[in-house]
Design a protein around this nucleic acid. Structure first.
Lengths: 243, 243
DNA sequence: ACAAAAGTGTTGGTGTTACACCCATGG
DNA sequence: CCATGGGTGTAACACCAACACTTTTGT
């Protein structure tokens, strides 16, 4: 509706990359993990970065995000959404000089993903190494990637509080203790009392008790629950609070 | 960190526009307003769109957003933040054909703004007409702009609930009734009981009673309050709830 | 001119619900 | 040892009521 009618000022040229912040929760080791990659060429400097890619012809942003995810890891269950668009990020891309143009602007459209840790298989190749990193023990990051990662973690934090993303990556059957542990790893130890967390979620009415009992080590066997997506959809109008 | 090392697939070419969703609250008429523009050339079809612009050389996204805002309205107080990046939006830009390239992708980086209605002055020019539209009585919109507008309204809704954006656009001195009315216009009639809204906000401790009394027509004079930004900053760690 | 009525701001009360913290019991 | 369920005190909220102060209306 509002084109630059007077073309005194030329449009900028753009290079556009998609950067993924991919989280997973390792419930065995109580770790919140983020996926990082590194060029073998830069092995001397121990600098890692978010998996990213340039957007190709005929490809949407989301498709590019899914493509790089599929190139790096094999995964069955995931949640994916766009985060934010950062401009003028210094990406340290080795071949940026070849692709960059005079007076061009670099946009980094970031995406946030949460994947099921147990089912993922990392796929390294000849050029890049790839690894899960504990969010508590991050290596040096490519310039500009730290803010994207921080933004992604904040989104993860918020999403857990009012949306059912956890059930996208939890096993199909899970105990309430596992669900609580998942939340604890992401949100921190004292995010809520376990007893209240239980009754709050059960009262919402979208967790189905299968009455199957499992024993994880010692202690009383716990009941396995299932997320009922249909029952949840009927609640989607109302404001939901998980914590 | 992860360039397309094999350049079998060419990068896409991009055109990037910035689209603004600019809201204001007309407390006189109890209306929530959004700023729309229209080309005179398209007067016959009554189709309006969000103010938008191409990004120019040497300009950041946020600068582009501020530029188009400054071109359309004069305003003293505002709140501005990025919303979302939509790709492949059909923008109906009249001169898109000139600028578009074969196999190019169009990105619309949207921004959300809230401005003080009383202080704004619309600036029409020879090419575009411009107007505030009641969100309840929207005209036909340019293809692709309705989702952006809906996304912007949702952001406004959420922001009011946990952030002090209202105080960026309210007058410096305001009564609690005016604050309540502001929230009512945006969130709807029954968002909260007035009595609880009062005591909740006063208990948070960042509203200063000036003890100046004003009479708006009939009724008991109300006290004028001031937003204390310093006191608020000291609370920014804690999770704030306004509704 | 005066009194009554009506309108708006301000404050407090009450029942319900959610929560933090704690404890008893079951497997 | 851990899952499960319940119990208690506190805080927040929806709903309601009373009161304070002013303008408007009626006579």
């Amino acid at each position: 509706m509002n084109p630059d009618e007077n073309n005194f000022n030329k449009q900028a040229n753009f290079t556009v990359s998609v950067d993924n912040v991919i989280f997973s929760v390792d419930t065995q080791a109580n770790r919140l993990l983020v996926l990082l990659v590194k060029n073998f060429q830069q092995l001397s400097e121990n600098i890692w970065g978010l998996p990213e890619t340039f957007v190709r012809q005929g490809e949407s942003l989301q498709t590019a995000s899914q493509r790089i995810l599929a190139e790096k890891i094999w995964v069955k269950n995931l949640y994916l959404e766009q985060l934010y668009t950062f401009d003028q990020v210094n990406t340290d891309l080795s071949d940026l000089s070849e692709n960059s143009q005079v007076n061009s602007i670099h946009l980094a459209v970031s995406y946030f993903a949460l994947v099921r840790y147990e089912d993922t298989r990392l796929m390294a190749d000849q050029v890049n190494s790839i690894a899960w990193y504990d969010l508590q023990k991050l290596p040096n990051l490519v310039s500009g990637h730290q803010p994207i990662l921080a933004y992604g973690y904040q989104r993860l934090h918020n999403k857990l509080e009012y949306s059912p993303v956890a059930f996208d990556v939890l096993p199909e059957l899970f105990t309430l203790g596992e669900l609580y542990q998942f939340y604890t790893i992401v949100l921190g130890e004292n995010f809520s009392d376990y007893s209240n967390f239980r009754s709050r979620l059960l009262k919402l009415g979208f967790l189905r008790d299968t009455h199957i009992k499992v024993s994880r080590g010692a202690g009383r066997p716990a009941s396995l629950y299932r997320f009922d997506a249909i029952a949840f959809d009927q609640l989607k109008d109302k404001p939901l609070v998980f914590i």
